[in-house]
């Protein structure tokens, strides 16, 4: 699979751009967090496309961003369950 470039993204409509980025991010996230992959991908897709392209080129940055997303998600789930009970 060829790398995703800014010009490939620019040629697609905005909603399709996020889908294209998600298709690249998802398998990488799936390898780290299988049960949360769809959710984490969705969270990361709210980041600017230009930054997402940089993350795809930098595994270390991507890993730290994924861990950040997991931490945010877990903190959110804990606060949700605290509020409900």
């Amino acid at each position: 699979q060829e790398p995703l470039t800014a010009s490939m993204l620019a040629a697609a409509p905005p909603q399709e751009q996020k889908q294209m980025l998600g298709e690249r991010l998802y398998p990488l996230i799936l390898a780290m967090h299988p049960s949360l992959a769809g959710k984490i991908t969705g969270m990361l897709l709210e980041i600017d496309n230009s930054e997402l392209l940089l993350l795809l080129e930098s595994p270390e940055s991507l890993h730290s961003k994924i861990e950040e997303a997991v931490a945010v998600l877990q903190a959110h789930q804990i606060s949700e369950s605290t509020h409900k009970s």
Partner: peptide
């Protein structure tokens, strides 16, 4: 600094991968 990531973000549905059950 507070994370900018949103825990309420919509879940991503991949086209090219089977959905985990």
């Amino acid at each position: 600094r507070k994370s900018t990531l949103n825990p309420n973000a919509k879940e991503f549905n991949p086209r090219s991968f089977a959905q985990p059950k």
